[in-house]
């Protein structure tokens, strides 16, 4: 044991001698107040919590999905048209353009 450990143990051993003489009984009305508050508080339900966050996640995902479609709509439609035009083999053969 080093010097610090010895000093610390000496101090904590002395601190432990100071017993706590304060009353440990519940104050008057404490139990009634706590049980009243507990009765008014809904019980913790992990499943309900999961459902709540899952639903929120679904809403956010749907919103993001919609936003992605709206923002890239013009790109998608342009690319689709270009692709169609590029692959119009019949038109090329017959020189319809």
């Amino acid at each position: 044991m080093n010097r610090f450990d010895h000093q610390w143990q000496k101090l904590t051993a002395l601190a432990r001698l100071a017993g706590d003489t304060r009353d440990t009984a519940a104050p008057y009305g404490f139990a009634t107040r706590v049980t009243g508050l507990a009765a008014a508080t809904p019980a913790f339900n992990p499943r309900a919590l999961f459902e709540r966050f899952a639903l929120r996640g679904l809403v956010v995902a749907a919103a993001l999905g919609m936003a992605a479609i709206v923002l890239s709509y013009s790109t998608i439609t342009t690319e689709a048209t270009d692709a169609y035009a590029a692959s119009d083999t019949v038109g090329e053969l017959l020189d319809l353009s």
């Binding site: 010895h6 000093q7 101090l11 002395l14 601190a15 001698l17 100071a18």
Partner: peptide, 21 residues
């Protein structure tokens, strides 16, 4: 008293020791 190892601590100092800790 704690830092100078040669001196003993008195049980009467327990409350102060607890505060200090």
């Amino acid at each position: 008293n704690v830092l100078t190892d040669e001196r003993d601590v008195a049980p009467g100092d327990a409350m102060e020791a607890r505060e200090l800790v």
